[in-house]
Simulated scan of single mutants.
Amino acid sequence: MSVFQKSIKVILVTWIAVQIATFLGLNYPSSAGIIGLLSLLDTRRSTLLTAKRRVLSMTSAMLAAILCFSLFGLNIWAFGLSMAIYIPLAYKYEWDIGLSVSTVGVFHLLDTGSLALPVILNELGLFAIGVSLALLANIYMPSHQKEIIAARNRVELLLKGLVLRFHHILATGQSSDEVHRIQQLEKEIQTALELVYRDQSNQLFQRTDYEVHYFEMRLEQCHYLLQMVEDIQHCHFSAEESLILAQLFKDTAQQLEDKSTPIHLIDRIDHYLQVFRERPLPKSREEFESRSFLLQIFRDLERFIHLKVQFHQRYPQDQLSDD
């Protein structure tokens, strides 16, 4: 939601709450506007949760105040005692978000000097108006689905480009700042995750963790890319080994946007791992290190692909529509 939309919503909720309280002839009508303003948060879920806590907070504060004022009279000492009862409960049960509003309500009882039913109903009415309008105002929350789909497409495009870069490095021996590219992709994924979490907070009933798991899967794949690029840069492979790896990275890149599970690639990697394990033992330290790096890259690439396999096994049908 834009700053302009949010500002308009806050202004309208505050103004309408005051007008309704005034129309109903309630005392302290501005309090209804303040309650509405404080209850209006960025997402549906946070607004609903806050409203629930404010209701519990207000209820406990009023009950404590009525008890203390009835026993010890309407004075500041009884007020202090009621707060001594209410405040620890509010913090213990996480109702403290309604502490200020509830305290103002109790102050109104003290200021009025009466515990008559109309006075108590006045405070409850102010509270109900403010909270209800905040909840109504947050019925409308713009969906971020189109932005999430666009972010997914960007991530897949960047990831595919990175994996193809691995193919290029192995095929030509030329590399550039791949680490920086991967870090930029990680930032893109983190931004997308923040968008997904925000969108989830506006879904009260129909929730899915699909998008969260999707971007988390891509983020974990980035970690394997970082490991593989470091291994590639620290060793020299034979022409045959470079060709095999280059082709595997190329095939992996081609299936990144494919909704099928690339199990065949895992089978190929397992085959190559077996082939290289059965080769004669290295005769020098350099050969030993190269063999070790080679096997590690195969294993990391296998894990990289396996992440997507696991994801598609968990979500057999793609749940993000491009509509």
Results as ranks from 00 to 15, higher is better:
residue 217 M to V: 01
residue 226 L to A: 04
residue 267 D to I: 00
residue 207 R to A: 00
residue 250 K to E: 11
residue 220 E to A: 15
residue 223 H to N: 09
residue 250 K to R: 12
residue 265 L to A: 08
residue 264 H to A: 11
residue 209 D to A: 06
residue 240 E to Y: 06
residue 262 P to S: 07
residue 233 Q to S: 14
residue 265 L to P: 09
residue 236 H to E: 09
residue 262 P to T: 03
residue 247 Q to N: 14
residue 259 K to I: 14
residue 258 D to F: 10
residue 243 L to F: 11
residue 218 R to C: 13
residue 246 A to E: 12
residue 248 L to D: 10
residue 206 Q to S: 06
residue 243 L to G: 04
residue 262 P to E: 04
residue 206 Q to G: 00
residue 212 V to R: 09
residue 243 L to M: 12
residue 206 Q to L: 04
residue 232 I to R: 02
residue 232 I to A: 09
residue 232 I to H: 02
residue 265 L to V: 07
residue 254 Q to E: 12
residue 266 I to N: 03
residue 250 K to G: 01
residue 236 H to N: 06
residue 227 Q to V: 05
residue 240 E to D: 11
residue 246 A to N: 07
residue 210 Y to P: 02
residue 213 H to G: 09
residue 229 V to C: 14
residue 263 I to D: 12
residue 234 H to Q: 09
residue 217 M to L: 15
residue 215 F to M: 09
residue 245 L to V: 03
residue 240 E to I: 03
residue 220 E to N: 10
residue 261 T to S: 15
residue 225 L to Y: 10
residue 208 T to V: 05
residue 264 H to P: 00
residue 259 K to Y: 11
residue 248 L to M: 15
residue 233 Q to A: 14
residue 212 V to E: 04
residue 228 M to H: 05
residue 252 T to Q: 08
residue 229 V to H: 03
residue 261 T to C: 08
residue 213 H to F: 11
residue 252 T to E: 01
residue 253 A to E: 14
residue 247 Q to F: 01
residue 224 Y to L: 05
residue 224 Y to T: 02
residue 238 S to E: 11
residue 265 L to M: 03
residue 248 L to I: 07
residue 258 D to K: 08
residue 266 I to P: 00
residue 249 F to V: 01
residue 239 A to I: 02
residue 222 C to E: 01
residue 221 Q to C: 05
residue 247 Q to R: 12
residue 206 Q to E: 00
residue 259 K to D: 15
residue 250 K to C: 02
residue 248 L to K: 08
residue 263 I to Q: 15
residue 257 E to V: 14
residue 263 I to E: 11
residue 235 C to L: 06
residue 218 R to Q: 15
residue 245 L to T: 07
residue 265 L to W: 01
residue 214 Y to M: 10
residue 239 A to H: 09
residue 261 T to M: 12
residue 209 D to S: 15
residue 264 H to M: 03
residue 266 I to E: 09
residue 213 H to C: 12
residue 250 K to H: 13
residue 263 I to L: 14
residue 205 F to I: 12
residue 243 L to A: 14
residue 256 L to D: 04
residue 261 T to N: 03
residue 202 N to H: 04
residue 207 R to P: 00
residue 259 K to V: 07
residue 226 L to E: 07
residue 223 H to Y: 05
residue 218 R to P: 00
residue 263 I to H: 02
residue 252 T to L: 06
residue 204 L to P: 01
